[in-house]
């Protein structure tokens, strides 16, 4: 008679995690074992290489590998490899800091820095120093994406001089999360841009002001009006800000909010990207509907 371990008995439909195979690879000479399907970036990070720069990568989005700043060298590959999207193979030999890799990163940062405003993009200043970025060598006549800031609604501003066309806002607005498709990449080449249909202003677009595009923007091209105006006035000071996690006061879905507070005022609202309810996303009420606690007149 067969005996069944009661602990092993599962109720119908209870999912069983698929078996995970481990893959061994080398990162900068060091052997690393990670689960099959892991990206090279994740594998490098698990091996302690936290210094691979990324811009278009977002932990809630499918890697677009458009910015090409996370490139690494993989033995046997004719070109460099985007670490954010390439999954590991057994026996892969990865190098994260060769001259070739550093050259590529320098050039990508120079290309972006010479055409767009990266002044508020996190970490870019540090990387520029690390990789010896020199945007002056492109001359003063170079083409740039300089253009006026778009203020067509009261909730957030779009400063496309800061846009590096990472596609994250389009993916967040589109099939990966919000499924509103208010914006897309329009045009081609250097003229490609993020736009609503026929470059309409947001109030004439399908935008629902969830702000999930703001949440994923790596360069501050999309910004809460509060933050934008405070920055313009020189009042934005993250060292004076607190971040408090709480739950949205509107419907019963229970979205976790991170309230960014400066000088006793909520200046921005985000949601943790690793939260099982929101995955970093909110709706217009959660993102912008906080004013009622600060309208104190």
């Amino acid at each position: 008679m067969t005996t069944i371990d009661p602990a092993a008995a599962v109720r119908p439909g209870t999912p069983v995690a698929p078996p995970k195979h481990l893959v061994e690879l080398t990162v900068d000479g060091e052997t690393v074992r990670v689960a099959e399907g892991t990206t090279v970036l994740q594998a490098c990070r698990s091996a302690g290489h936290d210094d691979i720069p990324t811009l278009c990568y977002g932990d809630t989005l499918t890697p677009k590998n458009a910015c090409r700043v996370c490139m690494v060298e993989v033995e046997g590959s004719r070109t460099l490899v985007p670490s954010c999207s390439r999954t590991v193979d057994a026996g892969m030999v990865v190098r994260t800091d060769t001259e070739r890799v550093r050259h590529s990163r320098r050039m990508v940062l120079e290309f972006l820095g010479s055409s767009t405003d990266l002044s508020v993009a996190a970490n870019v200043g540090r990387w520029n120093e690390e990789y010896g970025v020199d945007t002056e060598r492109y001359g003063s006549e170079r083409a740039t994406k300089a253009q006026p800031v778009v203020r067509d609604n009261e909730l957030y501003v779009r400063d496309y001089e800061k846009c590096i066309l990472c596609y994250k806002c389009v993916d967040a607005c589109g099939s990966q999360w919000q499924n509103t498709f208010a914006i897309a990449v329009a045009g081609r080449g250097f003229d490609a841009r993020i736009a609503a249909e026929y470059d309409a202003e947001l109030p004439d677009s399908a935008c629902v002001y969830c702000g999930n595009c703001i949440a994923v923007c790596p360069t501050g091209a999309l910004m809460f009006t509060t933050e934008h105006d405070m920055r313009a006035a020189g009042n934005w000071d993250e060292s004076r800000q607190t971040q408090t996690d709480t739950i949205c006061p509107y419907c019963g879905v229970g979205c976790q909010l991170t309230l960014h507070v400066q000088d006793a005022s909520i200046v921005k609202v985000t949601s943790p990207s690793d939260h099982s309810v929101t995955h970093g996303n909110l709706c217009i009420k959660g993102r912008f509907g906080f004013q009622h606690v600060q309208n104190r007149d």
Binding site: C207, Y209, P249, I284, K285, F290, H292, V293, Q294
Partner: peptide, 11 residues
């Protein structure tokens, strides 16, 4: 609208 009335928006 006690709470949502606190912010205006294009919608």
């Amino acid at each position: 609208g006690v709470q949502s009335g606190g912010f205006s928006n294009p919608l």
